[in-house]
Design a protein around this nucleic acid. Structure first.
Lengths: 197, 197
DNA sequence: GCAGGATCTGACCGATCGGTCAACTAGCGT
DNA sequence: ACGCTAGTTGACCGATCGGTCAGATCCTGC
């Protein structure tokens, strides 16, 4: 009689529910996700969701807070540092965060406008605005804003909803994605330097 | 006795409700939008929504069908044509469609995966896939798919949710946006590597 | 005036929403 | 054995969901 049934029961339920909620939030949206669906997806009762997280909003906060904190940390690191490789390092870190927290990013980027009354979303929106200012630096032309928006929103789209439109047999690995994302985003954020080259 | 009060009362309510619905769908999501909110935003009763459009799904279909048809038409034009300026013309047309139907595009791009059971959304998803194939042409590398996804999803994000993260006093005009979008998207879709084609 | 269609609405329906609560079942130190 | 705590759940609550339906109101042709 091996004990293989539940070898690692550590914080099982809370994390399972959080992950199920994150997937629903990123696909159907926060308003369109019901606690019942989250509970069903994770194999629990609706009451259990409200036991581990006091409310639907608290669940959202727990689900995306790590991602927001990641962006804030990367931003602080960039603002505190100096040197020539700063921008490159920033793009590096941001791409890693996008890959690691793709669902959370999708939530507070796409649904940020409609959920800005929630404290955690407001925090995320502030972080994104500061990131935009950092990337565009002092040159705050319209084109720079557009470049930043396309790069960030495009990456968020690609990593979640975009998978639906790709060929099924062509699912790139995260390493491939990281490589391509870093190259393309750097290219987008670096204004045209003689494309003919 | 001027007839200025209601010079063009043609299909007034239906269009107002459709527009209100489109804005809600694009911001809060289809599942998160209630018929009551749509009716309130347009100044009608919930019953009126269901009088003009038989169901919530029918309302969504009416709201985004023009955009889907626009993309299908542009796609057909591209596939039927020949010549050197085809790709440039395609990007031109697509950017115009993105600006004209920005909310509808946001709906079937972002929520496409979760609403694919609705016929109109399935149609839109097919159109987007065909567009991806047309843009990437025969070269179907991972990087090309990523470039297309970033360009399309980034533009969709920028034109709707992205406005939240921009400076309030820096709201670019549609002409500025069209110009910047066309330049940047062309740049993204044209790899730096010298693939002569 | 009046019939009749188009439009608009409130009342209502069953289902589901987020959330509360009491009860139940483990496990665990004593 | 005991009590205690954490975890889990079904029953239940008021509110809201999408949708139905019978009128009320309007406009227009006669």
């Amino acid at each position: 009689m091996p004990t293989e049934v539940t070898p690692v029961p550590r914080a099982r339920a809370a994390d399972e529910l959080k992950q199920a909620a994150l997937e629903q939030f990123a696909t159907v949206g926060f308003a369109g996700t019901s606690l019942q669906h989250i509970a069903d997806a994770a194999g629990y009762a609706k009451s259990s969701v409200l036991y581990h997280y006091g409310s639907k909003e608290a669940l959202l906060e727990a689900a995306i807070e790590p991602a927001v904190e990641g962006f804030e940390a990367v931003l602080e690191e960039f603002l505190a540092g100096r040197g020539s490789g700063r921008r490159r390092t920033l793009v590096d870190r941001v791409v890693d965060l996008l890959l690691l927290h793709r669902q959370a990013v999708h939530v507070f980027l796409i649904q940020g406008p409609s959920l800005s009354e929630l404290p955690i979303i407001a925090r995320a929106n502030v972080a994104v605005r500061r990131l935009a200012a950092a990337v565009c630096e002092e040159r705050e032309s319209v084109e720079d804003q557009v470049r930043f928006g396309i790069a960030l929103g495009g990456a968020a789209f690609l990593l979640t909803a975009g998978r639906t439109f790709a060929d099924e047999q062509m699912i790139p690995s995260d390493d491939e994605l990281r490589d391509a994302l870093h190259r393309i985003i750097s290219e987008i954020l670096t204004p045209v330097r003689t494309t003919g080259n």
